[in-house]
Design a protein around this nucleic acid. Structure first.
Lengths: 342, 342
DNA sequence: TTGAAAGCGCTACCAA
DNA sequence: TTGGTAGCGCTTTCAA
């Protein structure tokens, strides 16, 4: 079922039919009666324009490349859902690549996006690679780049919310589980935590800081990190984990070591993924509006595509606000821990 | 950077270059020296073939349509990850549509897949819609269809594993939370449960059966279902939930009603999604090899595409085996419950 | 061993 | 108001 067949069937030129069916402005000069006839025939013969051909001709594919670390759980999935909803409602298709932090995939992504002629690229939780002149939007990218819109959480605010909460509960000796070194938020978040700690007069000695050794979205990296932390120090009454899964892993490790959460130690997660609320004890955490960040990224792409030619060269940051979600893993520092701090 | 520019640059015909770069068999008759020259130039000038043009010409797009209920958590995400890994390793791209069980989206999906000229379609957890002659693979589709390969769990075996486990712990009075009515596994699973119950001599009176009222992947539908169940009957010592999130919702509802799991009631989940292990108490559940089901679906697609012409007309079922994962939410029936059953 | 040219299905320019 | 036609970038047949 191509335009040619339809044209033969209707006795009209392919040009006329194309104009009507693709909603071209030139269709205004075609009488309503003819238009109706065309629509009817298209419906009846079940005609679907071939988007490959249209894309080739128009030089745009109505598709957007999306590069994410993973889909199977948590962070990326929430963002991706927001992106998918928004872009597919606008008629776009995603060319999705998951990289699992592997260099080869990241390198190959550029080639794939170029071959598929995507109109724009969205990078989620990934350090920026080069995509030439393709309009680019990033989510949680650590650095700014000319012409790139970056959707980021206000990490300073997030760290402040978390630490103020712990401080107000009497916690002075904080331990931190930093993110996996390749995760895009790791450095930025850490700097914000240092700043907030300094502001509140909380110290963060080296032995109370550990780092996730894997990006794996299970509790294991958090479990290992906590083991290591407890080996280095016992002088903490609260732990701030890089994300919710790590927090849960940490809780498991402490339980196995005979420590109760929140009785002995308070734990703070990050992200507020779906199971944070469902976990027992339910997780106190800092919510990132992940779904909305996906929507914002998609909208930024759509905006860029709606005004072609206007090559922006300055970097734009869209900052979203975190939210403190207080649940069951944080409570007032025990007398003992408070005494230590004094 | 098109073939034409490359051709001009090399002083060779587009035909020759195309043959070499696309790995056509006809390239064998081109001397290695020339081939090397072509590869070098392509690399140097950063040439990427336009896949839109190639697809148009070849009549195949190296893309596969994937229709899933949702991406943000659990079931679909695990399957999707398996599909994505396998197909992207084979050079395919996904055209992904999430339908959230909405009829309009399901209807529109056919049009989108046709327009994007996907080579095949994979439907996950979705009742089959019509995709004409496009090679189709389904995951957990309730019915069989001519020419369609269906990847399914052995539900009879799954129900038997679960019920035998509960039976062996002394449970006789079982309650069941059926799946959301639109979920593709609901009916099939329910029939298997009835069969297994009959086999073991366990009864399933109406008042001990409830149904999820939403497909939402949170604990709320399970919470509501359990509330309703407790309103209808208290004569059960074990609950078999349709999936893990529902099981967790049910546990919450029982806790709020003063019942302890597993002390008073045993709970059995389904799927073994990531947080089932992490939840406290950790969930006894029937594991579906979701990731592998995704891989199998993708492989079935690749196989179909590798042997064109061979139109299969008989339905093929690929049956995968469930696995009983015993954790902390099931234990021996209390004396009281056992006495009631006697 | 290499090249010329047709044509995949569509859109957009120019002409009528 | 409508139609003819060139051409998007590629592959592949046929000819040399």
């Amino acid at each position: 079922m191509s335009l040619r067949t339809l044209s033969a069937h209707l006795g009209l030129s392919m040009a006329a039919i194309s104009r009507v069916l693709s909603g071209s402005p030139a269709a205004r000069s075609i009488p309503p009666a003819t238009q109706e006839r065309i629509f009817a025939a298209a419906r009846e013969l079940n005609y679907r324009p071939n988007l490959l051909a249209r894309s080739l001709r128009r030089g745009q594919s109505t598709s957007v490349g999306v590069l994410i670390p993973d889909i199977s759980e948590g962070y990326s999935a929430h963002v991706l859902a927001g992106i998918e909803e928004t872009l597919s409602a606008a008629g776009y298709t995603l060319v999705m690549i998951t990289h699992h932090y592997r260099e080869e995939v990241l390198a190959k992504s550029e080639r794939i996006f170029a071959e598929r002629a995507v109109d724009a690229v969205i990078l989620v939780g990934t350090n920026l690679h080069v995509y030439g002149t393709t309009p680019t939007v990033t989510v949680s990218c650590p650095d700014s780049h000319p012409g790139v819109t970056n959707i980021v959480l206000d990490h300073d605010r997030a760290a402040e919310l978390a630490l103020r909460h712990l401080y107000s509960l009497g916690h002075r000796n904080l331990a931190v589980i930093k993110g996996y070194k390749k995760s895009s938020d790791t450095e930025r978040r850490w700097q914000s935590i240092e700043r907030a700690a300094a502001m509140l007069g909380m110290t963060l000695p080296e032995e109370r800081v550990v780092q996730l050794d894997d990006e794996q979205q299970t509790n294991e990296p958090g479990y290992r990190a906590m083991k290591k932390l407890m080996h280095q120090s016992r002088e903490f009454s609260a732990v701030f984990a890089f994300n919710d899964v790590a927090a849960i892993g940490a809780i498991d490790a402490m339980r196995d070591a005979g420590l109760d959460v929140p009785e002995d130690v308070s734990v703070m997660g990050f992200d507020d993924v779906a199971f944070a609320r469902v976990h027992r004890p339910s997780l106190t955490t800092v919510r990132q509006p992940l779904h909305r960040m996906g929507v914002l990224a998609a909208n930024a792409v759509l905006e860029k595509l709606s005004q072609p030619g206007e090559k922006q060269t300055d970097e734009v940051e869209v900052v979203v606000e975190p939210e403190l979600i207080v649940r069951a893993t944080t409570r007032a520092a025990t007398v003992c821990a408070a005494a230590e701090a004094a």
